[in-house]
């Protein structure tokens, strides 16, 4: 058994960039027979982050599953990132994660220490999120995979879907973009250690604080910006909410180094799938460079929350988020539906 293997070399694609395109998924599910149950508050029909099932008047169950191939070589860090990413879906629904199950695929060449480190990373983030890992399932396969199936709870009247945005809402994003591009450039050894540490810190930063703060304000809609990119997830929010989303590109936070790497073509394949999925609904109203558009379509691993909050609460929410160490920014607003789902300017 090897012990000093590079995890990312065992995977054909990395992190949330491995996600199957949004359009492909909805086509595959079309026409399947399913039971109707009025207690199912959120199902797959709105492409949301997690399903929500009402248990009683006070409690609804939130369920999600997320896993992916290694995005980093350090197994502990990989476990942390995968768990942070999986837990995020419950936060994005306005819920609190409570229980989780490991999902793990091992390649034969991985040593037991590597596997243990991946799991230790996952457990460390679950602990930070007040979540208990109760078991899981592990198999052998062609490449490593790790993630969690997370269950949490939310009050049935306080579920935050990605389809509740209303005209007049302001959009706040809680983490900068560019992770997919930077991790692609890192595969070519072009990213220095300081920048790598910065994006590792970001990917292991739970959306817990942001989620707890947003619940104090009048928030209509929320999603986490992950594999489908800012524009892919915005497209889903706009379509689901029957609104148009306007993005002030100059205000969108991103890692500046990602711009140059995008110009050089270090762009993950998932960014092109995201563009193909959403671009017919996107109107580019301003002079926005190709590299900047690439960043807007870049798949994020363990990305931030995109929150649609009332205009009157937006400044207060942003202030409290930034005061609490969440790198949030106002990136746009919502209007009645127009010719395009998304307008970039």
């Amino acid at each position: 058994m090897e012990t000093n293997i590079k995890l990312t070399k065992l995977a054909s694609c990395a992190g949330c960039g491995a996600k199957v395109g949004a359009g492909t998924l909805s086509q595959m599910l079309e026409g399947f027979q399913t039971h109707f149950d009025e207690r199912l508050l959120v199902g797959y029909d709105k492409s949301d982050d997690a399903s929500v099932f009402k248990l009683d008047e006070e409690t609804a169950l939130v369920q999600t599953l997320d896993f992916f191939p290694p995005i980093v070589d350090d197994p502990f860090l990989f476990g942390q990132i995968a768990a942070t990413n999986a837990l995020s879906d419950v936060y994005a629904m306005g819920g609190e994660p409570r229980l989780a199950l490991n999902i793990l695929c091992l390649k034969d060449s991985m040593g037991s220490e590597t596997v243990q480190e991946i799991l230790r990373g996952g457990y460390s983030k679950a602990y930070e999120a007040d979540t208990i890992i109760t078991g899981g399932h592990t198999i052998h396969g062609a490449e490593p995979l790790y993630g969690l199936s997370v269950s949490g709870f939310v009050h049935p009247d306080k579920v935050l879907t990605n389809s509740g945005a209303k005209p007049g809402d302001v959009l706040i994003l809680t983490k900068p973009l560019g992770i997919g591009i930077l991790t692609t450039a890192a595969k070519a050894d072009l990213v220095d250690e300081m920048l790598l540490n910065r994006i590792y810190t970001q990917m292991t930063f739970l959306n817990k604080t942001a989620a707890h703060i947003m619940k104090k304000y009048e928030v209509h809609s929320c999603t986490d910006v992950t594999g489908f990119s800012l524009l892919g997830h915005s497209f889903e929010m706009a379509q689901g909410s029957d609104c148009t989303i306007h993005i002030d590109v100059a205000n969108v936070p991103y890692h500046k180094e990602a711009y140059e790497f995008a110009e050089m073509g270090f762009i993950p394949a998932g960014a092109y799938r995201n563009r193909e999925y959403a671009e017919n609904g996107v109107h580019v109203a301003g002079d926005i460079s190709r590299a900047m558009q690439d960043i807007l379509y870049d798949p994020q691993t363990s990305g931030g929350l995109m929150i649609a909050v009332t205009e009157k609460d937006a400044d207060f929410l942003l202030h409290e988020l930034t005061e609490s160490g969440v790198p949030a920014a106002m990136i746009g607003y919502v209007t009645e539906t127009q010719e395009h789902s998304i307008i970039l300017k």
Binding site: G265, I267, A269
Partner: peptide, 13 residues
């Protein structure tokens, strides 16, 4: 497609 686009970007840059 991704390789076509990425190599094009690199060469143009």
């Amino acid at each position: 497609h991704a390789s076509k686009e990425n190599v094009t970007r690199f060469a143009e840059k």
